[in-house]
Write a protein that binds this DNA or RNA. Structure first.
Lengths: 397, 397
DNA sequence: CAATAGTCAGACAGGTTGCCTAATCGATAG
DNA sequence: CTATCGATTAGGCAACCTGTCTGACTATTG
């Protein structure tokens, strides 16, 4: 643990650093624990009365904290209740997805308190000269409708069905026309005057699963996303594993069996060919279920079909468990969700039958748009961290 | 990134904390960058002359730092050169391994500077009433021979061919008789009066690979250990992935192909059965190579055998890449080492042929005992971190 | 003599303790 | 029912404390 890492602080400095640290600590507590009185803060930080007062004065005058109310009931004067100023900063979340025709963009704007202040789904044509401008326009119009100042957006989190390579500034492996344009993200950054981060949609779904779904409190879990495509998100105690080229979780390419082996399917060299949407539909057809949509196929399918599907899911699960040993594997995506408890139970059985590997299998607990929710959470977290850091690092006068 | 984590510091305090932080920062720099003059420290920390002097005085009087020499050559007085006191603390490393008959224990003691002060391999019978006492006795006798005070050992790192479960205080999946005894580690801790950490041998080999082998400077890499058994260590930027039950990297259990599929081998349900030592020997026999030792078989085997073996290695590699996307995969263990450049090249070819997954394959660069070296590194790192932390945290007078 | 190592004294910044005043609630007395 | 008192708590103020910094000073070396 911590080999070569700078986990142990090497901070050094003088009294100014102290003030910065204390201010930042108070802000962090306000952000994570909600409204607090002076005495709450005193208990949490161990600071003295005059210091807490001074720090709060600083935060209020920096427009980062406000007095939201007063205590009442007890003896003595009513203590002031401090909270972060909700309008101190906003985070924007965008989820772009293919719908077959024009791409759909889900947008949301959250304030510092975590309240979603605006949310919309729009069809945005991105196959234009400047797709970034189209996204900015959509975001600004959503802000306008909700009466929010767009320049208060400190960070924008973008979810895409692909992976972003910062070195080439391009989104790869994406089917949405226009979204793969090089320079889109840096233009977005410039036009919005804010930080922009791009994340894979499956990764964002995992973030939502940890925050709102069945992975709440899990130490580590993997989210298996089955849809038209196939994806895997790996969450290690709240940190997502991305891999050296952002390719972690590309389990569609996972080879199945030794080359030359004759498998049940004529040609099954990788997991994609047996578990992604088309393969699910094909498997359903073998079991007499006629459907073009994989989720519909799963809903309509009988026990035999589900058992066959579960065996394939179990292969993926077993591999992930053998490599990573997560305590939990969440089945998500339209297929995972449609499978529900039936697919979960069948997969549990199939996994247990395949060997000594153990893990809890669960169906996603996120009913709302998981990608957008994840982008909101990630964006909000980023804004909060940036604020804390900005307070912490401005101690060189 | 950093979701839910306390990556952002929430430290708060008064001037005492400042002193503790500065002392700890100076110690950290001395530990990681070796001997330094006052001006070096001033540049690294940004502290003023009087403060650096004061901090160094504190460290020297705490026996943690010493003056090792003086500069010369330049104009002005000769600056004192400070270094951590090598004898300030020791770390012990133990690697227990099965040899067929009596278990062999490799022992080493390192001082704070990283110099190995004692090293030995002993045969230690662990199938006794108190196996912990036998280990302690061996360690003490090694210290005695080298003239080292055993009570200066601040931490002992134990490498075992298995996994340690702290909840039951027992080492699991271990073949060495006596080593699986419950309570062994806590007794070791008590008898040595020091912290004891247990690590899987393959994980330790990965640590050695990062420090002394081909993984130096890699952002993330996986180490595939092929021996009598099969193992995988996953290093993410210097942090090892252990999994929720310490079972990460148990790829021997990885299923191969869909159940019911007829594979090349009659019965090949998992990776262990095609890639662990016995399978390597069997594959060699198929290619006319007669050997009982898998490493010898690999050394004696021809190109066809190596290509067949490499195809199996590539399956493991491809799976790891699909899940984790490391930039580097290191082949280690006796088979990996014996395979050398030939196996590496054949595996590279086989991986490239199997799909679009990419990763650099390399042969281990550690020639010395990798498990013991890893235990030394991990133990030394732990001692250093503990020292830095102990200085950092004693600011409540 | 020039340049550098290290110390010393005073200033400074920020935090803490202890004391003070003001606010609020409950209990008690009228 | 009302007025008052006491207990309790919020928050401010002043003096003190700790640790760092600046600038001057001494000592040492080429």
């Amino acid at each position: 643990m911590g080999l070569m890492s700078t986990s142990v602080e090497r901070l050094s400095g003088s009294a100014k650093l102290l003030r910065a640290m204390n201010t930042s600590a108070v802000l962090a507590h306000l952000l994570s624990r909600g409204p607090l009185t002076r005495s709450d803060i005193r208990e949490l930080t161990g600071l003295s009365k005059p210091t807490t007062s001074e720090v709060l004065r600083t935060l209020v005058s920096a427009d980062l904290a406000i007095v939201t109310g007063h205590t009442s009931g007890g003896p003595g004067p009513n203590a002031e209740i401090y909270a972060t100023n909700p309008d101190g900063a906003y985070a924007a979340a965008l989820s772009v997805r293919e719908t077959g025709r024009q791409p759909e963009v889900a947008l949301a704007v959250t304030d510092l308190s975590g309240a979603t202040r605006a949310r919309h789904v729009r069809v945005v044509g991105l196959d234009v000269a400047e797709p970034a401008d189209a996204l900015v326009k959509a975001l600004h119009s959503v802000c306008l409708d909700a009466g929010l100042a767009p320049d208060r957006i400190r960070h924008t989190h973008l979810g895409v069905p692909g992976s972003y390579d910062p070195t080439t500034d391009a989104i790869h492996h994406v089917d949405v026309p226009g979204l793969g344009r090089a320079g889109l993200v840096s233009r977005l950054r410039r036009r919005l005057g804010a930080t922009v981060e791009v994340d894979n949609d499956v990764n964002l779904a995992a973030i939502a699963e940890r925050r709102h779904g069945v992975a709440r409190g899990a130490d580590a879990f993997a989210l298996l996303w089955i849809d038209y495509g196939l994806g895997l998100a790996i969450d290690l105690g709240g940190t997502l594993l991305r891999g050296s080229r952002g390719g972690a979780g590309e389990i569609g390419y996972m080879p199945l069996g030794l080359p030359g082996a004759r498998t049940l399917l004529r040609d099954a060299p990788d997991l994609h060919s047996v578990l992604a949407g088309p393969a699910v539909v094909a498997l359903a057809a073998q079991h007499g279920v006629r459907a073009t949509d994989p989720a519909a196929a799963v809903k309509a399918g009988g026990a035999a079909f589900l058992a066959a599907l579960a065996q394939r899911v179990a292969i993926a699960a077993a591999t992930v468990v053998a490599v990573l040993d997560p305590s939990l594997i969440v089945l998500a995506g339209t297929v995972g969700r449609a499978g529900g408890d039936r697919l979960r139970d069948a997969t549990t059985v199939a996994l247990r039958a395949s060997g000594p590997l153990e893990a809890t299998i669960a169906t996603t607990g996120v009913t709302d748009d998981p990608v957008l929710l994840g982008a909101i959470d990630a964006g909000l977290e980023r804004v909060r961290e940036d604020l804390i850091r900005s307070v912490q690092h401005n101690h060189r006068q």
